[in-house]
């Protein structure tokens, strides 16, 4: 009899685990993976793409919800996502670009050809800021809230569908 009771512990233990699974269904795992999630935007000091005498640092990202997009002239997918970024800028969302591993001329050429949704572009030719951000490759997009804390990380190309289903809801959530 005792043994049977002991064996009954097995289904009970399993049901306990199942309860956690059940709760897990309503949690968002994407918030669990990125080490940078809910952390402050890394400190940096750089010049801007347009003006090599203008210096910017992390205080740039304080005060308003901002989308930070990491791009480069060398990256074909960045060209493809420009229409979506311009559309986001049209909806009064503050956009800051990180010109990643690029040269000034090529970056400027890119912006004049494909449009410029960015309030300002951080010039990051050596990829130092990109490294601190844990960028895998361009394009990547980070949502930074008004306190300069990273709230959302989109890896890769932003499709029109991503704008509707992921980016805009996230922006609304943190505004």
């Amino acid at each position: 009899m005792k043994r049977r009771l002991l064996l009954l512990l097995l289904p009970v233990c399993f049901l306990g685990l199942a309860l956690f699974f059940f709760q897990g269904l309503s949690l968002d795992p994407s918030q669990r993976d990125s080490a940078l999630m809910a952390r402050e935007f890394p400190a940096f000091e750089a010049t801007t793409l347009r003006d090599k005498n203008q210096r910017v640092d992390q205080s740039l990202l304080q005060g308003d919800v901002t989308l930070v997009n990491v791009w480069g002239e060398w990256c074909p997918a960045c060209k493809q996502e420009m229409p979506q970024l311009l559309e986001l800028a049209d909806q009064d969302i503050r956009m800051v670009g990180v010109n990643y591993r690029d040269t000034r001329e090529k970056g400027m050429e890119f912006l004049s050809e494909f449009g410029d949704p960015f309030e300002v572009n951080i010039f990051d030719p050596e990829g130092e800021l990109g490294f601190d951000l844990g960028v895998y490759g361009a394009p990547e997009t980070f949502l930074v809230d008004a306190d300069g804390v990273i709230r959302y990380h989109h890896k890769g190309y932003v499709s029109p569908q991503d704008v509707r289903e992921r980016i805009l809801p996230e922006v609304e959530k943190w505004r």
Binding site: R4, L7, P11, F14, A18, F22, L25
Partner: peptide, 23 residues
């Protein structure tokens, strides 16, 4: 949710059968 239910039913029932019949 559906697979979780499927899993819960399968595992609980089979462990119950085990607990009741194995000894």
């Amino acid at each position: 949710f559906f697979i979780l239910m499927l899993l819960a039913i399968t595992v609980t029932l089979s462990l119950l059968v085990f607990a009741l019949r194995a000894p």
